[in-house]
């Protein structure tokens, strides 16, 4: 039993990493653009799709698929921003209309993939091999997903804290108006943030595809988990997104030993409601 829990913890870490990466993008888009991006999960799915198609149909080595997924999905992010976000965001009810517009964009992406490839999962060959650590055996792919995820989060922190773009991004997150006053190109910074978030989601999709297989519905499921993570971890908080993402992956994975996957998911939504009742701004907010 103890071994099983350990094994599930190890598995949960890699899945949790994808939740963390998804939530990171969502929370950043929320913090900087002040919108909720309902198409976000489809960027994750597209990342998985690029990896699945390139490895299975074109024989491209897995590691070469990661930059390809990031670049192609950046283009999808750019188009979504141009067509579904920018034109509506400035309107009086912009933040609400954007919900519907990004939801529509997500559906279009999803239905297009579903119509072309069908719902059947596609197996993706990632990094082969298994490592045994005492009672726990982990595939190299899972280890890679965890390490690469940590690396991405670290790079992200460096961009945010150490680069001029990062400083400008934080400026826009704190005050749109003040950023305009000092002459920052606020629209450009917002678009870049949106695209960067799409890239991170795509990489998360590319990391998980060899573990869980690709299917067109993967974005939907994970995005909902991403939203839960972002709300529990406080909208706009990056540490909140990362810690709650990992926590959720671990919790879900261990709980599924005892109560099954579906009920474990239901418990997580219950946790969301409890959080909203007692800490409406999330666990990582400065004021409750």
């Amino acid at each position: 039993m103890g071994d099983l829990v350990l094994q599930q913890l190890a598995n949960g870490l890699s899945v949790g990493m994808t939740y963390a990466l998804i939530a990171l993008g969502l929370t950043m888009v929320f913090g900087v653009l002040h919108i909720v991006n309902f198409a976000h999960g489809e960027f994750y799915m597209l990342g998985g799709l690029v990896t699945a198609l390139l490895t299975s149909r074109a024989g491209v080595p897995y590691l070469a698929c990661l930059p390809a997924a990031a670049i192609l999905v950046a283009a999808a992010g750019w188009a979504t921003d141009r067509l579904a976000v920018r034109p509506v965001i400035g309107r009086p009810d912009g933040a609400t209309i954007v919900l519907v517009a990004t939801f529509a964009a997500g559906l279009i992406i999803n239905e297009t993939v579903l119509a072309t490839l069908g719902p059947a999962p596609i197996r993706v060959d990632g990094i082969a091999g298994v490592v045994k650590l005492g009672p726990v055996s982990l595939t190299w792919q899972r280890i890679f997903a965890i390490v690469f995820g940590i690396l991405l989060i670290a790079i992200f922190q460096i961009i945010l804290r150490r680069t001029e773009f990062g400083r400008q991004l934080r400026a826009v997150a704190q005050s749109d108006y003040a950023s305009r006053v000092i002459g920052l190109d606020v629209e450009r910074i917002k678009s870049l943030t949106f695209i960067l978030a799409a890239c991170v989601a795509a990489l998360a999709g590319a990391l998980i595809a060899p573990i869980l297989s690709f299917n067109a519905g993967m974005g939907y499921h994970t995005a909902i988990h991403g939203f839960v993570v972002v709300v529990i971890g406080t909208m706009g908080s990056i540490p909140g997104a990362v810690i709650c993402g990992l926590g959720l992956g671990l919790l879900e994975s261990v709980a599924s030993i005892f109560i099954g996957q579906e009920i474990a998911s239901a418990c997580i939504y219950a946790l969301l409601i409890v959080t909203l009742l007692f800490r409406p701004n999330g666990v990582f907010s400065r004021s409750a």
């Binding site: 400083r167 934080r170 400026a171 704190q174 005050s175 108006y177 003040a178 305009r180 006053v181 000092i182 002459g183 920052l184 190109d185």
Partner: peptide, 27 residues
């Protein structure tokens, strides 16, 4: 644009100050 006005040599200290609250004085 505001950006090129600032580049051209115009600057504003706005009503209500509008500093970036969570950033340091230096930033």
């Amino acid at each position: 644009t505001t950006r090129s006005r600032v580049e051209a040599g115009l600057a504003l200290s706005p009503e209500g100050r509008h500093v970036f609250p969570e950033m340091s004085v230096m930033e």
